[in-house]
Design a protein around this nucleic acid. Structure first.
Length: 816
RNA sequence: GCGGAUGUGGUGAAAUUGGUAUACACGCCAGACUUAGGAUCUGGUGCCGCAAGGCGUGGAGGUUCAAGUCCUCUCAUCCGCACCA
């Protein structure tokens, strides 16, 4: 029978749907596997990255189902977000319609690829039910002070007309539209993620080995913990006078207390409160004010190009030497790190050095290299010996840090301090298509929460999408409401939540069964059973976004009593990108391959096979048309040669001893493929080698013509391949084995016992010959035979040593 | 600058973790069947060499009977962070 991907794939997709084949059981006594791929944004159509992502998770899900695990493999859509709203503005449509049309289309694409998702648990984060539960969590978090509202200097994307979290600013630009970010002073809601900084950092250790090193490092860097010394610098008398004594001092932070005697100036961020005060009170010349304003309004990329500064005409007193040191403003000092002020040590810090050179400031060296060789014309930033450092002279600079911090603490002039790069997570978005934040602004009661029984606060359908401002802010009946506390007229919060809030707990929502999903977000019992995710699969681009937020939410939820574990994802696999012509597939480059077209031409199984065969999942995958063709040919051959099978509901019993050499070899290859498949699914995840093993077994089967060997081979190989090419494998399995072979397979050790073995013969480690010898031959026999075969290399040589590596090789070491 | 990877045939990639380097596939070459082949099947294919043989895992050393694998140095490419005090 001719192989028809269309017919076979349609048949099995209907079969699986009709039989609810992939619904997990609620029998919590069974062993479970929770297999999850990061859910997609419903952008319109699937791309190859999606196909790769879900081909990997589907292989895992199907394998573990075969192994009799209770498998949860759900799918949903991360369906709030700006692209939907931008599309609505562009097409004069509604984000909701656009989103749900896309979801329908993409769901069909998913099922036409044969992915084994639980249909009952499909959901979209823009569903009102999802919003309802999320808003309830938000209220709980606010009550526990894990969420707060504050005015702050925020990242504003002029194109998307909204603020962004720090994680969402890439190289100073918006992560979605690449527009340069500007700073804007606004009110905003924040999650207290910094409260969890230490735990988020420390528990990375528990993920070692289970998560890619790279992701752990990226999170570590992002949290950016650094230890150092914080202390106050006091203004001298004339400076205090100038400031009308409104400021006595300011706080600085350093990780290099050992350089304290080298401080020759200090620098404030242009946004520092003292600077703002001086501008407001006209304590600076017009010229200087203009320069400061220029620094503040320059984009962060621009600001990095050149170090600029101005002197404030103020002085502070060095805490140890009591010398007077000038106060400057410098554009490289960041207001949102530490205290927005630094002590500058040009002799031992590159930035301070550059700045000092430019503005001709003093440079005091206090550390010298142990070998006394100092490079001229740059800062010495290495460890060395302290000098000109009072009582600390002669100490190792690294070790002196402890002593200097101790000195500051004992004299109560400073203290040991830890700083983090991580900032609280700002979640307000000034856009319509997001989950409304369930708060009300009341003139009398200030910020109050919505009552839980009024949830969900839903988006008004009749908002207008003009592209100007926030549609919710312009929607009168949404905006005007009654205070939930006093009942007076009040204003509803019109900011919506960052979509990363939804993706921070969707994996928990999937644990809810059809029975309880309407009335609660998830039950404790279900969470306890299904979590953590046994295998999570997704792109590395979420290393510090989604993956950090989801870890944070898990910890918050634990502290709110919703669940009882610390980390959500037990194992993480980050898939590589799909490339075409050496570049990432993208519409702008015009090098995309449409999954639908591949399914149409070759079928879903071919697409899945190629994707899993062409490279290991963690590596980049180069799309190659003739490679796809090759996968298609393999499937056809695999299907055609199944005609060699003798139909049976059980695996044939074969007397191994009575087989020919070729038949024995074929069986060995089949069982090798099986051993490898188990290893790949459980440990290595290198599906490419597993598939190669199946191909080798097929080649070996083809070199013999024993029907029982063929049948046994197919019994096992279709079982191995079902996770990869489920339609074709199911078709063969149904036709010949009544689907009885899609179960755990027993590895027969007898096929690995061989009468003879082939050994390489090396002389001085160089391969010179090969011998075939009975497996039970003694060491002496083997070596005698090896010497015979390699005689020409041993003439007139003195044999020093003979090494036998069983089943591998013989190495003879000779002299001369 | 800091951190993380990765370098193996013409190409995508293997190598049971120190034991016959290049499995499997693509491509290419030859043959068979064909009116035909962008179908199918069979065989060949690391490089140099007529051969014997030599050389080969980015490069240079080292450890070892034995190194793609371990150690030292070095080069190249990719990714992440980046004025974080």
């Amino acid at each position: 029978m001719e192989y028809s991907s269309k017919k076979i794939e349609k048949k099995w997709q209907e079969y699986w749907k009709k039989n609810n084949s992939f619904e997990p059981s609620e029998d919590f006594t069974k062993e479970k596997k929770y297999i999850l791929s990061m859910f997609p944004f419903p952008s319109g159509r699937l791309h190859m990255g999606h196909v790769r992502n879900y081909s990997i998770s589907d292989a895992f899900a199907r394998y573990y189902r075969q192994q009799n695990f209770n498998v949860l493999h759900p799918i949903g859509f991360d369906s709030f977000g700006m692209p939907a709203e931008n599309a609505a503005i562009k097409n004069d449509s509604h984000p909701k319609g656009w989103t749900y049309d896309n979801i329908e289309y993409m769901k069909n694409e998913f099922y036409s690829l044969g992915f084994s998702f639980s249909r009952e648990r499909e959901m979209a984060t823009s569903d009102e039910l999802y919003t309802k539960f999320e808003q309830a969590f938000i209220i709980d978090m606010y009550e526990k002070d894990l969420l707060y509202r504050e005015k702050g200097l925020l990242n504003w994307c002029p194109h998307d007309q909204t603020v962004l979290a720090n994680e969402q600013v890439i190289d100073g630009c918006c992560w979605r539209c690449n527009t340069p970010i500007v700073k804007k002073d606004m009110n905003q809601y924040y999650f207290r993620i910094t409260k969890y900084a230490d735990e988020l950092l420390d528990s990375l250790k528990t993920l070692e080995g289970a998560w890619p090193k790279q992701v752990l490092t990226m999170q570590d860097n992002w949290i950016g913990k650094s230890n150092g010394l914080a202390f106050d610098l006091f203004f001298d008398e004339s400076s205090k006078e100038k400031l009308n004594s409104n400021f006595e001092s300011f706080d600085v932070f350093t990780t290099r207390p050992d350089t304290i005697y080298g401080v020759s100036y200090t620098a404030l961020a242009p946004e520092h409160a003292i600077v703002t005060y001086m501008i407001e009170n006209k304590l600076l010349s017009e010229d200087i004010i203009t320069q400061i304003k220029a620094m503040k309004t320059t984009s962060s990329i621009q600001r990095q190009k050149e170090k600029l500064g101005v002197s404030l005409g103020l002085n502070v007193i060095h805490p140890l030497t009591k010398k007077s040191i000038p106060v400057w403003i410098a554009n490289f000092v960041l207001m949102d790190y530490g205290s927005g002020a630094v002590m500058a040590v040009p002799a031992h810090d590159d930035r301070d050095y550059d700045f000092a050179k430019k503005y001709d400031l003093n440079i005091y060296a206090v550390i010298k290299a142990f070998n006394d060789v100092a490079e001229v014309g740059k800062a010495y930033t290495e460890v060395g010996e302290l000098f000109n450092s009072g009582e600390f002279d002669g100490m190792n600079s690294k070790k002196s840090q402890y002593n200097i911090i101790k000195f500051f603490e004992e004299n109560k002039i400073g203290k040991k301090t830890t700083n983090y790069k991580l900032k609280d997570w700002g979640v307000s978005r000034q856009r319509y298509w997001g989950a409304p934040i369930p708060f009300i602004h009341c003139e009398d009661c200030s910020l109050v929460m919505e009552k839980k029984e009024n949830l969900p606060i839903t988006l008004p359908q009749d908002a207008e999408f003009t592209g100007e401002g926030n549609p919710l802010d312009n929607h009168l009946t949404f905006k005007h409401c009654k205070c939930s506390k006093c009942g007076k007229d009040a204003i509803r919060e019109t900011d919506t939540m960052d979509t990363f809030v939804q993706s921070s707990w969707y994996f928990l929502r999937f644990c809810a069964s059809k029975e309880n999903m309407q009335k609660e977000a998830f039950s404790q019992e279900q969470i306890k059973y299904w979590m953590g995710v046994d295998q999570y699969i997704g792109g590395i681009e979420h290393a510090v976004l989604h993956l950090l937020y989801a870890r944070f939410f898990t910890k918050i939820f634990r502290d709110l009593g919703y669940l009882k574990f610390d980390e959500p994802f037990d194992n993480l696999l980050t898939q590589g990108m799909v490339l075409k012509d050496g570049a990432k597939m993208s519409k702008s480059k015009g090098n995309t391959v449409d999954p639908d077209a591949i399914i149409e031409k070759y079928g879903a199984d071919t697409a899945r096979l190629f994707i899993l065969f062409a490279a290991p999942p963690t590596q980049e995958l180069e799309w190659n048309d003739s490679g796809v063709e090759g996968s298609y040919k393999f499937i056809k051959r695999f299907f055609d040669r199944s005609s060699n099978i003798i139909a049976s509901d059980t695996i044939p019993k074969i007397k191994h001893d009575e087989l020919s050499k070729e038949e024995k070899f074929a069986r060995k290859k089949v069982y090798e493929a099986l051993v490898r498949a188990n290893d790949v699914f459980r440990e290595k995840h290198t599906f490419n080698t597993m598939i190669a093993g199946v191909m080798e077994a097929m080649n070996a089967l083809n070199s013999q013509n024993n029907s029982d060997v063929w049948s046994e081979g197919y019994w096992i190989l279709t079982s191995i391949m079902e996770p990869v090419i489920p339609h074709t494998a199911s078709e063969i399995s149904e036709k010949y084995f009544s689907l009885n072979n899609l179960n755990p397979q027993i590895v027969l050790q007898e096929v690995f016992v061989e009468d003879s073995v082939t050994l390489g013969v090396s002389i001085n480690g160089k391969r010179r010959a090969e011998i075939e010898i009975a497996s039970d031959a003694s060491k002496d026999e083997i070596i005698r035979f090896a010497k015979e075969k390699a005689a020409k290399w041993l003439d007139n040589k003195e044999i020093v040593k003979e090494i036998l590596v069983p089943k591998k090789l013989v190495n003879i070491v000779v002299k001369n």
